[in-house]
Nucleic acid binder design. Structure first.
Lengths: 135, 135
DNA sequence: TTAATTGCAAATCCTTTGCAGATTC
DNA sequence: GAATCTGCAAAGGATTTGCAATTAA
């Protein structure tokens, strides 16, 4: 079973230090800058394993790439700023309830849902275009 | 502006006859079987145009492919069966309102949201594993 | 020791693009 | 006739995979 290798820990650490969702390639860059030598394929493989073990969340961007995020135990969603990329975690009891109800009405069970909100945060909309320097 | 070509109409027709979401490649196959000669690239291009014009819905599957579906004019979401792939359109006034409120609370504007529900539909869960033969 | 893991590069898969010829308006 | 399409094949970008060398247990 799963061995605890330097690479695996590095990927986890990179994931932990990320503010929001990251693609495998972004994580690979982070590791590279940190001086950790980890192959891109290994990053992909590690993320896959973690995703299978449900240790990380996976979402698909519009471009089709997979983004990963280490997830806290509890279920929640994200509100991401389209301009600066800042993300806020929001819990949505209302949404959870809605999802269950709607699913139930249609006879569905074992329901899971994906909810992602995006918009422009206060600072970015005021300044009319402050760039994202923080990634 | 948009020309009405045989290929374009064929893609639209294929999309209309589909029960649920289809990938570009699936649509291409459908057309092929119907005897319509339409290049794969053309299918992609048509779908892109339609998606831009908001004439079709686009979602990303777990595998990373884009799936398209002709949609009614109004905004709505989908409840998809993980087993047979059947999809139900659900409107979510509750979700829309929630999204706006949450975003507002965090100072975000120009909010958009993505919501997809998946589960196992009644027939599939009863039969404990009836396969999806219909695609 | 030994099964699991890594790295690299080649291979895949989905999607996009360049371009010459065909089409719609 | 002019601006748009289409098809094909080549190009791209993300992710996967084969395999020999490496490493944790």
């Amino acid at each position: 079973m799963a061995k605890i290798t330097r690479q695996r820990q590095a990927v986890l650490a990179a994931l932990d230090s990320a503010t929001s969702f990251c693609t495998a390639q972004e994580l690979h860059d982070v590791l590279r800058h940190r001086g950790e030598k980890v192959g891109l394929a290994t990053v992909y493989r590690s993320l896959q394993l973690m995703a299978d073990a449900e240790e990380v969340d996976v979402i698909r961007s519009d471009g089709g790439e997979a983004s990963y995020r280490r997830c806290s135990a509890k279920h929640h969603h994200h509100l991401v700023c389209r301009v600066c990329g800042r993300a806020v975690e929001v819990s949505g009891p209302a949404v959870e309830a809605w999802a269950d109800r709607v699913a139930g009405e249609h006879g569905f069970s074992e329901v899971s849902h994906t909810v992602e909100l995006s918009g422009v945060c206060a600072s970015c909309s005021e300044e009319g275009g402050a760039e994202a320097r923080e990634l």
